[in-house]
Write a protein that binds this DNA or RNA. Structure first.
Length: 282
DNA sequence: CTTTTTCCCTGGACGC
DNA sequence: TGCGTCCAGGGAAAAA
């Protein structure tokens, strides 16, 4: 499941291979990849573009071309990139191939075909992102106050609020669970009712979890590998995700799994206890 | 407006 | 072995 750390790892791995290169030929094999646009037409438009930079916004990869156009890629569940020479092409799940001007291929794979490619004009990028993606949690400007402002007045569970990309760009199910465990906050607490100290802990926790994820090159659960084919090692750091019934690393209480925000949600019922109504209002 | 639910998609795990 | 069923979940869209 590519979340911020996985997407950032992919970006870093791909960057040296593609920046400065020209797309000699593009082939898109999945009719759904560029919906609602015709994949053959998108492929034609990609041909000849020279790549000026590879950026990340939340879970989006943005391939910036010298022309100013941008290819906005979302990997969703199983999208992934490989570079040729390190892995045989024409795998059963190869959905697109970009042939570069140095003869190498950038291969896009996506088992479940949830991923999307959207080619946008220069003036379309920011408006598109603005209504979908909030602040980058690892930027210096993302302070506790930033997080607090995004959560203020919200009655949705904190788990659901964290998964909202406008709250924390790039947050996903795994890192949300890990961050809430680190902050010792119950996933179903109403987001707007978190105390000042809890917000401080959560701010620190989610940044720590995401930074650790990047340092470990992401988490490999099934499909995900870096563009070099390396497995991530973040799964070895999981404290709660996928550990239902196992002892909490902090207190030994068995980890519980519930349904939160429509997603599997793992937490320690002792460390992350729901506060026993401290509220004094009747 | 906010929040919740449904849907898309496939392969792996599991029960019989 | 093989078949049916369930599950994983990011985000768009629909429903509440």
């Amino acid at each position: 499941v590519p979340e911020l750390p996985e997407v950032e790892t992919i970006r870093r791995g791909l960057e040296p291979f593609v920046v400065g290169r020209r797309i000699e030929r593009a082939a898109i094999h999945d009719a759904r990849l560029t919906r609602p646009f015709d994949p053959a037409e998108v492929a034609r438009q990609l041909q000849g573009e020279r790549i000026a930079g590879l950026e990340r916004r939340g879970k989006y990869l943005a391939v910036r071309f010298e022309s100013g156009r941008v290819l906005l890629i979302h990997l969703r569940m199983t999208g992934n990139f490989r570079v040729s020479g390190r892995d045989p092409p024409d795998g059963p799940h190869d959905r697109a191939v970009l042939r570069l001007d140095n003869g190498s291929d950038v291969i896009y794979r996506d088992v479940r075909r949830f991923g999307t490619w959207l080619l946008v004009e220069p003036d379309e990028l920011e408006p598109y992102l603005a209504e979908r993606v909030g602040e980058e949690p690892l930027d210096d400007v993302f302070r506790t106050a930033t997080l607090a402002a995004r959560l203020a007045g919200r009655r949705a569970p904190i788990k659901a609020a964290l998964l909202d990309q406008r709250t924390v760009a790039g947050m996903g199910n795994i890192y949300a669970d890990e961050a809430l465990w680190r902050a010792r906050i119950h996933p179903l607490r109403p987001a707007g009712e978190l105390e000042r100290d809890e917000l401080r802990r959560l701010h620190r926790a989610l940044r720590d979890a995401l930074r650790t994820g990047i340092a470990r090159q992401g988490a490999t659960l099934s499909n995900y590998v870096t563009p070099d084919g390396e497995r991530g090692r973040m799964q070895e750091e999981f404290k709660v995700y996928g550990r239902e019934g196992e002892p909490c690393p902090r207190c030994g209480t068995p980890i519980e799994k519930i349904r939160g925000a429509g997603r599997g949600t793992h937490y320690c019922p002792n460390c992350q206890a729901f506060p026993t109504s401290v509220r004094s209002e009747a």
